[in-house]
């Protein structure tokens, strides 16, 4: 497990039904590219988050494949439609098999 992984997500607390909202996500992760060399001259093995998904009440919003060329602390911003009140579920998949999850509720109003 990569240490210090902390997902952060910004979702408005409420929106009108059918509205488009902007979601900003960031997860603290070193995203080791597998290109860098350590002090001993050996290549530091790749360790990145390779996939990020966002779902709303079970329906997919975005599914992103991440490669080593994504910066440290991967940041993704996108827009989602809110048809009803519910919960956004965010999932990050690490190279080492770890899955980081977070969820945000949104109300209609």
């Amino acid at each position: 497990m990569a240490s210090g992984v902390k997902p952060r997500v910004k979702v408005p607390k409420k929106a009108a039904a059918g509205d488009a909202i902007t979601i900003k996500t960031l997860i603290s992760h070193k995203m080791e590219s597998g290109q860098r060399k350590g002090k001993d001259g050996n290549i530091i093995p790749r360790s990145i988050i390779n996939r990020f998904t966002c779902d709303f009440n079970g329906q997919n919003v975005i599914d992103v494949t991440l490669e080593p060329a994504i910066s440290t602390n991967p940041y993704v911003e996108f827009e989602a439609t809110v048809p009803e009140a519910g919960e956004f579920k965010f999932t990050w998949y690490d190279d080492d098999g770890d899955v980081y999850e977070t969820a945000k509720k949104i109300a209609i109003g």
Partner: peptide
């Protein structure tokens, strides 16, 4: 794609039915 990187792929964004617009932004390494 970043054509000049040691590994060109940067990422792929797949949009689901609830994506309000087919747009996204992120930060990449060059």
């Amino acid at each position: 794609l970043a054509t000049g990187n040691p590994t060109p792929p940067v990422g792929t964004f797949n949009f689901g039915p609830l994506a309000a617009s087919q747009s996204a932004s992120t930060r990449i390494r060059l």
